[in-house]
């Protein structure tokens, strides 16, 4: 900002630019070193331990290349992505309004709060046989599993966000004659968006777990299937390669979640 401030405000610190850049580059260095060290330990351990249990990093990467080239991994990835995407999107579409309604409608809150907390606390894996019995095999039950894994963090963070709106914001809106729908548009939803983003980030991580669980215990498919069949063949390198892909996927998706969170919480200022 180029305008000079007439009033006394918190002084901005232009001198901070350089140390920040230095800190960022040193963080990058640490990050790189940590990756290298992890790969090195993996490599070393791989050479010391029976290859049925652990395969060195380099062999895993080589096998990963083969799986990509043969088309096995891309096919599996695509199948998994469909389950993951559909489940997560439905979870977000259901979770956001559900959390908001829970926060703003007393009747729903009193009636449903403990049910939701109970379901959230419950290990979702325990529900899988139940879902299998009702929906059978196929795409739908897998999406339902991912949905169940992912929806609760969204509902609960949105609910907690929307019920922590400071009373002064509501009072200001009321003093300008806001009705409930105006309150939603100008206060409840904008205030809750950063919380929703946190919920979505948590949901991404849980959906990934749900995806693999569904692919293991329902009709095997996608990355879960790849892990299962390669481990039955004692193709440990392929197992590790697939797990590595899941991990990288997780890291990338969570980074995306963080970016979303920061983007939508810009008004909170640097914390």
């Amino acid at each position: 900002m180029t305008t000079t401030t007439p009033t006394l405000g918190p002084a901005p610190a232009p001198a901070a630019a350089r140390p920040v850049r230095r800190r960022r580059s040193s963080a990058l260095l640490t990050y790189g070193a940590s990756l290298l060290a992890g790969a090195a330990i993996w490599e070393l351990a791989g050479h010391l331990i029976d290859p049925v249990f652990l395969v060195p990093f380099t062999d895993t990467v080589r096998r990963l290349g083969e799986l990509v080239a043969s088309g096995e991994l891309p096919t599996a990835l695509l199948a998994s992505a469909q389950v993951f995407g559909a489940g997560l999107i439905i979870a977000v579409l259901v979770g956001l309004p559900a959390g908001l309604l829970l926060a703003r409608v007393r009747f729903l809150r009193v009636g449903l709060e403990d049910w939701i907390t109970g379901l959230y606390a419950m290990p979702m894996v325990a529900l899988i046989p139940f879902i299998l019995a009702i929906f059978g095999f196929g795409f739908t039950p897998k999406v339902i599993v991912v949905f169940l894994f992912a929806v609760f963090p969204v509902i609960i963070t949105v609910y907690e966000g929307a019920s922590s709106i400071p009373a002064r914001h509501i009072e200001v809106a009321r003093s300008f004659r806001a009705r409930e729908r105006h309150l939603w548009r100008d206060v409840v939803i904008p205030y809750t968006i950063p919380f929703a983003m946190t919920g979505i980030r948590l949901a991404i991580a849980r959906a990934l777990v749900g995806m693999i669980a569904a692919e293991f215990f329902l009709a095997v498919s996608g990355l879960g299937e790849l892990i299962l069949i390669t481990s039955r063949r004692f193709d440990t390198a392929a197992v590790f390669a697939t797990i590595l892909v899941v991990c990288i996927l997780g890291v990338l998706l969570l980074a995306l979640g963080h970016a979303l969170e920061r983007r939508f919480a810009a008004w909170r200022g640097p914390s």
Partner: peptide
């Protein structure tokens, strides 16, 4: 009985919406 038209309040806590 409720905030009337034509009346505006200035609050001690400023009452700005931080997201606007």
């Amino acid at each position: 009985v409720e905030p009337p038209e034509g009346v505006a309040v200035v609050f001690q806590h400023f009452g700005l919406f931080p997201w606007k």
